[in-house]
Design a protein around this nucleic acid. Structure first.
Length: 442
RNA sequence: CGGGGCAUAGCGCAGCCUGGUAGCGCAUCUGGUUUGGGACCAGAGGGUCGCAAGUUCAAAUCUUGCUGCCCCGACCA
């Protein structure tokens, strides 16, 4: 993409309503704009990051054996009345009436609808286990939206639903999602800690929150530092493997302030390993048995010919919260640097030349060259001053820069990783370097 | 929903106390000079001062009501 053809409205100053770093940066770098309280438009740069995150979440869901579908944003109130949650959910649910005065709602979650779909289409134990998911916009009329896309009313969520024949199988599904979440967040370059959690309005008796540690997070957390160093690489979804890794996590102390016990903390964790900080919840998983399959009368036929209610779980990831969460985790007080898995562009080409001169030609040439080699560069071909170009690119956080100016020889390219030193490369070395960076560990 | 605050150009703000026909910086546009860490000169465009009513010869400014947004708390991906 050439910057002169793009929409990248950068702000020099932070709008006064933005209080935390991620919100300020997302506004300043032209990723989002607020439309009304807790409701945002995603401008091109933010949209690219959002879509990359969404795709990573999708890939990992697929690897864990979940199957993607798409349910609507607007749901009929009927099934919610049947499950009893139409009244329970309270004011957080946005209720709508259509022209026939029928009760509709903008879905805050999809347990009812997925159970209905299951009920209408699955009749036999032979179809179990089944994990279905979608990535769809939700609406929760939060009491107080804040922190930009971190706590907003309209948000993009990945929600998975598992259906199993018995509790034992359902726990395996639960654990697959547990592992899938660890893998997903690792790919996003986030260190997410699973913590025992309350089940809230979803209900049930087994639940974990996945929390990343940041100074600015919404919840207070206590944990054993060893949790930060557990390696989940090369772990596949076989039952043995999953049990082993989950055991490693659950052995070590971690709790949010609601569940925290100081005496337990002191008893189980050496002083030097005690960590007390704040965190952001980015995922939440639940096992809730037959709560919805019973109330909505979803039944499957067993081998023995009996009809039983399947055992269910649901598993959410706050996709639209993640760009902000990544910023909170990665911002280092000087600049933002996107993890390479979600960076909006692979590399920034900073053209310091004038329209039509040698430097300008060289910039366009390397731009075309990289595009032809399947990279996605952003070329700054505007006539801004060099200083302003450098500042802007530091702000938007593309992790690698190619700087083309008159200082370099014709066949030399200055390559820089944000926050690190410069190196001089030839064209082919540059291509190889980018291949190493982006294709090596995929 | 309880407590607090704000609303003036795209963004950041001044003006309001003490009423008299709206200003600054950045951004935008035009022309020129500049080009390795937020350049300079000259010019230009852009605001029914959140909305409504009231007081007044006169309201951004005073009064009342409404709306929107933000902050602290309870709720949550």
């Amino acid at each position: 993409m050439k910057l002169s053809n793009y929409l990248l409205p950068i702000l020099k100053e932070s709008p006064s309503e933005a209080k935390i770093k991620s919100h300020q940066l997302m506004l300043r770098s032209g990723m989002i704009r607020q439309s009304s309280s807790g409701i945002y438009s995603w401008l091109p740069l933010g949209f690219k990051v959002l879509k990359k995150i969404e795709n990573i979440v999708r890939e990992e869901q697929n690897k864990a054996g979940a199957i993607e579908l798409l349910m609507p944003t607007i749901q009929s109130a009927d099934i919610w009345k049947e499950s009893g949650r139409y009244d329970d959910y309270g004011k957080e649910m946005l209720r709508i009436k259509d022209r026939q005065e029928r009760d509709l709602l903008y879905g805050p979650t999809n347990e009812e609808l997925i159970t209905q779909i299951f009920k209408d289409n699955v009749k036999s134990y032979k179809n179990l286990p089944l994990m279905l998911y979608h990535i769809q916009w939700k609406f929760r009329d939060e009491i107080r939206p804040r922190f930009g896309v971190m706590r907003c009313r309209e948000f993009l969520m990945k929600d998975t639903y598992s259906f199993d024949l018995n509790k034992q199988n359902a726990e395996y599904s639960y654990k697959k999602m547990y592992l899938s979440y660890l893998k997903t967040f690792e790919k996003l370059d986030l260190n997410a800690i699973p913590m025992q959690a309350d089940t809230g309005p979803i209900g049930g008796d087994l639940s974990h929150e996945f929390i990343i540690l940041t100074d600015t997070g919404e919840s207070e957390v206590f944990l054993d530092k060893n949790l930060l160093n557990i390696n989940i690489k090369n772990i596949d979804y076989t039952k043995n493997n999953i049990d082993k890794i989950i055991d490693k996590f659950s052995k070590l102390y971690s709790a949010t302030d609601e569940k925290h016990s100081t005496s337990e903390f002191n008893r189980l964790v050496e002083k030097k390993n005690q960590l007390h900080t704040r965190g952001i919840e980015i995922g939440h998983i639940f096992y809730f048995g037959d709560k919805y399959s019973k109330s909505l009368k979803a039944l499957v036929n067993t081998k023995e010919g009996k009809n039983i209610n399947p055992q269910m779980g649901s598993y959410g990831i706050g996709v639209s919260r993640l760009p902000a969460a990544i910023i909170e985790a990665k911002y280092n007080n000087e600049f933002m640097k996107w993890p390479k898995s979600v960076t909006p562009f692979h590399v920034a080409i900073i053209n310091l030349g004038k329209n039509g001169d040698e430097v300008d030609k060289k910039s366009n040439d390397i731009y075309t060259f990289l595009k032809n080699n399947s990279f996605d560069p952003l070329l700054d071909d505007t006539s801004e001053s060099p200083a302003s170009k450098f500042k802007n690119f530091d702000l938007i956080g593309i992790p690698y820069q190619i700087i083309i100016g008159s200082k370099m020889k014709k066949e030399e390219y200055e390559f820089k990783e944000l926050g690190k030193g410069k190196m001089i490369l030839s064209k082919s070395e540059l291509l190889n370097r980018l291949k190493e960076i982006y294709h090596s560990d995929q």
